[in-house]
């Protein structure tokens, strides 16, 4: 099963990475052998539970007690664009 440039285009939308047409070609070329290699897992037989975590940890939680917050200045300190204490983003639509 080969991944097509159309597939890559869809994934690049999901991942929000802008790719030019030539990049779409390049990525599908380099990604295909990797996916083929990943496909070797198909030969693994036997059904076991999926290991989301390697440790059997449960119920790790904290009490509802406030901790230190950042100042507005600190919160905004790394943003390229701010306005009136807000982060400024481009229009949505």
């Amino acid at each position: 099963m080969m991944i097509t440039t159309n597939d890559i285009e869809h994934i690049s939308w999901l991942a929000h990475i802008w790719l030019t047409d030539s990049e779409l070609e390049e990525y599908s070329e380099k990604i295909n052998p990797i996916l083929e290699y990943f496909g070797t897992l198909d030969e693994v037989e036997g059904d076991v539970d999926a290991a989301h975590h390697v440790l059997d940890l449960y119920n790790v939680w904290r009490d509802d007690v406030p901790s230190e917050m950042l100042s507005q200045e600190e919160a905004l300190s790394n943003a390229k664009e701010i306005k009136d204490g807000y982060f400024k983003a481009a229009r949505i639509l």
Partner: peptide
């Protein structure tokens, strides 16, 4: 129609 969006976290 807004030109930009302000974000408050």
């Amino acid at each position: 129609h807004s030109r930009y969006t302000l974000v408050d976290y």
